[in-house]
Nucleic acid binder design. Structure first.
Length: 737
DNA sequence: GCTTGCGGTATTTTT
DNA sequence: TACCGCAAGC
């Protein structure tokens, strides 16, 4: 059996079709657990075995560094060779590489820097001040995401402006333009600029584009359902006239719409690539039958998808367990009990607790601490975003790019060295007057500085010069170590309390990361570029501990047992102001992604009462939960006398006073705040949560909350059409209905 | 320029 | 409820 035959022996019929597809565009619609990664890696291996592709002709893009690394490793072990010369990495890394190699053509400074989210926000803060925009109108945070959305949709400030309808959109366009100016004058690009820049570079430089097309003959894109317009366009540009493009994805697992992902990219693949061949992988090798049936029942209600069926190759298994908890503590207790039971046969690392929002992790953590169960919270505060790490990185950036304004502004204040607002103002205005970057102005020590500030700035300059000299010769890790030492960054965290220890440990990790980068032949600048594109997922430790994770962070992973918790209407699907139908579909996909992470056991839980942001809310079961066919369910709640699936049955005519039982309440509004079992004072005017009302302009809605009495009365009402509003009933004409 | 306290706010976060 | 960011005081 030759190597190719050996490869094919591992595949089912559909997978073989995809792997052995020749030239031309190919879309692999890969349902959950259907061997998507296998197809991608085997395809690359097969193309090489067949002699169709040379390593340097391969361009494979993924969304995470981790996925890229795994892919490269798997291919290399399959072909027992190296992929050197080819590109296996993230979209952003590819774009960055392109821009670095062609900075001038891309109209970027030779040593442009990468602005992270923190710096984007700082820039926007400055822009807000400059344009005198009160942050009541729009938060810098919101502006950031609107600008990001525009960039992801390939719109420049001018295009956005010309499309703007209404003042607020024009304001965004104006902010965008000012933001972009500020960013450019700092010699920086943000994450979105990388993609945008790469696209416009290729659009403007045909020669470059053609050379890339002929070099990278084979394009492979993973998770195509989560590409945004810029990414799809980039792929399209790299494809040329006869693209040998393999796109792999599953529209049912598209969960990054809020970051610009366009499900349409995969749904309309044939429109972009009319000659495309489509292979659907329909066999699921991950989940037991009941799990798959439950998940299918949830996702089938979505309209924007290709209808498809997944058959379980795993076979039958335990039913899906549903549990209705009294509150979040009870939910955590139940989950911990079950985990305790499972751990007889499953290791902790094979178990995941998945939730919609990070804030939900608390009770589970508390419970697991109490029981001394090993657990890790995935995500949370991310390593590269920690203050101490960012501070050190700012220094490093200043070593590589002496005029990096963003890094300068950060580094000069940490540790505090007596340079305050006044001194900074002097430096800024001197920079303006001389027409030089801020760091350069600092080097020239403007006269306006007070003697004290002058001394401080001078010392800072000297420090940088010394470190820069060191950086010219020493390996990155040594530079980092010296820098931490001599800047006083490390000394800030000298105490023995937990926080300082953690910070020191993080700084040690940074040194280790630098050392490791040096081993891989990266210089300081390469290390910084890498770090800018790295995320926490890349640092994830594989330990034998229960994983507490958001649904988003669980994408692509699988576990023997999964607890999908907080399945309440309003939480999953998460509902907040102003999100509509499309988001509901995405929430459904999110639930689907969560459920299909499970191999053997799936538990769905929710709480009747949950404390959210300090408020007590009583929930009704998630509609997704009600979609699960009861014949695959084992309801553990029944023992406690509650039956979630009764909610589907007609409401009983006579209702016993069971005030907070979400199941048996009327089906109104998204979530009903619970006045609490003991304290439910009747409002004198008769307003109460749950009451349906009608407003002249907002239409019909339901009261979520009643605050205060008399003239102070405020009603929080959730309107069907416009979402949540707070009203003063004496002013707003509200009708009870 | 650093600390303390108040008020406003509150998703998801592949790069 | 809990955190973060900003504003006023030392």
């Amino acid at each position: 059996m030759n190597r190719l035959e050996a490869l094919l022996a591992d595949l089912d019929e559909d997978q073989k079709l995809a792997v052995m597809h020749g030239e031309g565009p190919l879309l692999v619609v890969a349902g959950a657990g259907s061997g998507k990664t296998r197809v991608l890696t085997y395809r690359i291996a097969a193309l090489m075995e067949l002699g169709l592709a040379q390593p340097h002709e391969i361009l494979a893009v993924t969304f995470t560094n981790k996925a890229a690394r795994e892919m490269a490793e798997r291919v290399e072990s399959l072909v027992r060779g190296s992929l050197r010369g080819g590109f296996v990495g993230t979209f952003h890394r590819f774009a960055l590489q392109l821009l670095r190699n062609h900075a001038r053509e891309a109209r970027l400074p030779e040593r442009f820097v990468i602005a992270d989210e923190d710096e984007q926000r700082q820039i926007l803060d400055r822009v807000f001040k400059k344009l005198e925009i009160p942050s009541t109108r729009l938060t810098p945070r919101a502006a950031r995401s609107r600008i990001s959305a525009a960039k992801n949709a390939l719109l420049g400030p001018k295009e956005l402006e010309s499309r703007a309808r209404g003042d607020s959109e024009r304001l965004i366009a104006q902010l965008y333009a000012a933001y972009q100016d500020e960013l450019r004058s700092a010699g920086a690009v943000d994450f979105d600029d990388m993609l945008l820049g790469a696209v416009s570079l290729l659009e403007r430089h045909d020669v470059l584009r053609k050379s890339l097309i002929s070099r990278f003959r084979w394009l492979l894109v993973d998770e195509y359902q989560d590409t945004n317009l810029a990414q799809a366009r980039l792929v399209w540009l790299l494809g040329g006239k006869t693209p040998n493009l393999t796109a792999v994805g599953d529209e049912d697992q598209s969960i990054y719409r809020w970051r610009g992902a366009e499900v349409e990219n995969i749904l309309n693949f044939e429109a972009a690539y009319p000659t495309a061949c489509i292979v659907t992988l329909g066999r699921n090798y991950r989940s037991a039958e009941p799990i798959l049936r439950a998940a299918a029942a949830v996702i089938e209600r979505n309209s924007r998808r290709r209808p498809k069926k997944l058959s379980s190759e795993v076979g039958s298994g335990a039913p899906v367990v549903v549990y209705l908890a009294a509150d979040e503590a009870d939910e955590a207790r139940f989950v911990a009990d079950e985990i305790g039971r499972l751990r007889g046969s499953v290791s902790a690392g094979e178990i995941a607790v998945l939730f919609r929002v990070n804030a939900q992790s608390r009770p589970f953590e508390a419970e697991m601490v109490r029981r001394a169960m090993p657990y890790v919270v995935v995500g949370g505060t991310r390593f590269w975003e920690r203050k101490e790490v960012r501070d050190a990185l700012a220094y490093l950036r200043l070593l590589v790019a002496p005029d990096d304004v963003l890094a300068f502004r950060r580094a000069i204040h940490v540790p505090a060295r007596g340079i305050g607002q006044v001194a900074m103002d002097h430096l800024e205005s001197a920079a303006g007057a001389w027409g030089v970057p801020l760091p350069e102005a600092a080097r020239r020590l403007p006269e306006e500085l007070t003697p004290r500030a002058r001394l401080a700035v001078g010392e800072f300059n000297t420090l940088l010069v010394e470190l820069r000299t060191l950086a010219a010769g020493a390996p990155a890790a040594e530079v980092v170590r010296q820098l931490l030492d001599r800047s006083g960054l490390a000394a800030q965290y000298g105490s023995e309390d937990e926080e300082d220890r953690a910070r020191r440990a993080n700084l040690d990790q940074l040194v280790a990361a630098a050392a490791e980068a040096t081993e891989r032949g990266l210089d300081l600048r390469g290390f910084l570029d890498e770090v800018a594109l790295l995320t926490d997922a890349d640092m994830r430790r594989e330990g034998d501990a229960v994983q507490l994770s958001t649904l988003h962070a669980a994408k692509g992973l699988e576990f023997a047992a999964v607890f999908l918790v907080g399945m309440e209407d309003g939480l999953l699907p998460l509902r907040r102001e102003g999100n509509g139908e499309a988001d509901e579909e995405e929430e459904r996909r999110l639930a689907y992604v969560g459920m299909t992470r499970a191999q053997r056991r799936l538990f769905l839980t929710f709480a009747r009462v949950r404390r959210v942001n300090g408020q007590l809310l009583s929930g009704r079961p998630s509609p997704f939960l009600l979609d699960v066919p009861r014949e695959v369910v084992e309801d553990r709640t029944a023992a406690a006398g509650r039956d979630p699936f009764r909610a589907r049955a007609p409401q009983p005519t006579r209702r016993v006073a069971k005030p907070s039982d979400g199941f048996h309440e009327e089906r109104f509004g998204p979530r009903t705040p619970d006045p609490g079992p003991r304290s439910s004072p009747r409002h004198p005017d008769g307003w109460r949560p749950g009451l349906k009302v009608r407003h002249a302009t907002f239409g019909s809605g339901v009261i979520l909350q009643v605050q205060g009495t008399d003239a102070q009365t405020r009603l929080v009402v959730f309107f069907d059409r416009t979402g949540r509003k707070t009203l003063i009933p004496s002013l707003a004409k509200l009708e009870r209905c």
